[in-house]
């Protein structure tokens, strides 16, 4: 069943078609919401809100983009609204600008990097610590394999900004990885940088 047929089925009140849509796109929504919101306790509620919005707005879906792009845009906007609301309530804060992790945090993390698998885990932690725009763009591009054009439709960021975020995020992560490897000379993790 293609996107257009699925939309028609759902608009006709076919509950199974909606269930199918949720199953098909829940991973995408979870990744976008998770990377932006970063709170497991909020993730399920926001994902639910996203799909309810999808259901309500489905009549307005004209098929100009892929359904997944349209759903990702709703997920992104809902998540951003959520964190803005949280910021207003002073419960949560996020930085729009890239930051390097503070030295004292590094020390704690460096202690943990003793095994090979830890290197990947460390990088994932680094990704989670990137600013929200970087995390979102990385997730959409690498994890969900959206094109620059589609990411532009989803986030409303210009293509140039997306490319710049991607390369800067990658550079930041690589620098972090190298920095940790240098300070942990005995670590097996050095192999990744020098290899």
């Amino acid at each position: 069943m293609n996107d257009a047929e699925l939309v028609v089925q759902i608009l006709n009140g076919n509950n199974n078609a909606f269930r199918f849509l949720v199953s098909k796109h829940e991973r995408l929504v979870l990744h976008v919401v998770g990377r932006v919101v970063q709170r497991q306790e909020d993730v399920e509620d926001i994902c639910q809100e996203v799909f309810i919005k999808v259901f309500r707005k489905l009549k307005r879906f004209k098929g100009e983009s892929r359904l997944s792009t349209w759903i990702a845009a709703i997920a992104y906007n809902t998540s951003i609204s959520h964190i803005r609301k949280k910021i207003r309530q002073n419960e949560h804060s996020y930085d729009e600008h890239p930051i390097l992790i503070a030295a004292e945090e590094d020390d704690a993390l460096n202690q943990k990097i003793v095994e090979k698998e830890e290197a990947k885990k460390y990088l994932l932690e680094m990704i989670e610590r990137l600013p929200v725009n970087y995390r979102t763009v990385l997730t959409l591009f690498h994890l969900e394999e959206f094109s620059y054009k589609e990411i532009e439709q989803i986030t409303g960021m210009p293509e140039g900004t997306i490319k710049s975020y991607l390369s800067r995020a990658r550079k930041l992560l690589k620098e972090k990885l190298e920095l940790v490897a240098k300070t942990e000379k005995t670590n097996i993790f050095v192999d990744y940088v020098e290899g």
């Binding site: 979870l30 990744h31 990658r170």
Partner: peptide, 24 residues
């Protein structure tokens, strides 16, 4: 395995958030 490869691997790994089994 080099730094780039490790980075690529990390970038295609999803964040560890989960939804309930019967979410859909």
């Amino acid at each position: 395995m080099d730094c780039e490869k490790l980075l690529d691997e990390a970038l295609i790994t999803g964040p560890g958030y989960t939804l309930s089994d019967n979410f859909a």
